[in-house]
């Protein structure tokens, strides 16, 4: 079944005809060429595909494009403005919170959701709240530091 979905992605209104079975992550990667959102598993565990839907984090591999009709989606590509990194992105760079970069977009998007709920997260909170994101490179040490620093920068 082909359906039409209308949504806003990174501030741009988009309309696409897709099969009903199209996942949000497929819409982003294959139809909108936004390949920053990654697929690292098929059981909703790894978090490489985390984006924001209407201001809260969601796993784009576990969401149909159809469910996002009218939604406002923010992906990793929508964070930096005019070439300037978002404070959370900057914190990841400063603290070496990424290595191969594959989990990174999902980590950053989840980090923003953590800050939304916990503006001043401590280490234990950050570690607990990252339970939906896997990283095989960093051992999480520098990601945890980066999330704390990013949260601090966002508080201003």
């Amino acid at each position: 079944m082909t359906i039409t979905v209308n949504l806003t992605v990174n501030g741009q209104k988009v309309t696409r005809q897709v099969e009903a079975r199209t996942l949000l992550v497929q819409l982003l990667r294959e139809h909108l060429d936004l390949t920053g959102t990654h697929v690292g598993c098929d059981t909703s565990q790894c978090g490489a595909c985390v984006v924001q839907v209407d201001g809260v984090s969601a796993k784009a591999c576990t969401l149909l494009a159809a469910q996002c009709e009218g939604a406002n989606v923010l992906t990793i590509e929508g964070l930096a403005k005019d070439g300037k990194l978002h404070p959370m992105q900057e914190a990841f760079r400063e603290h070496h919170g990424l290595q191969c970069g594959f989990c990174t977009p999902g980590m950053v998007m989840s980090a923003l959701d953590i800050v939304r709920r916990h503006p001043s997260p401590d280490e234990a909170t950050i570690r607990k709240e990252l339970e939906g994101n896997l990283c095989r490179c960093t051992g999480y040490h520098n990601i945890v530091k980066a999330v704390a620093a990013g949260a601090k920068a966002m508080r201003g």
Binding site: V53, A58, T62, S110, D113, G132, N133
Partner: peptide, 9 residues
Amino acid sequence: IGDPAVRNR
């Protein structure tokens, strides 16, 4: 339940 992103949906 699940993880933060799962709890949002």
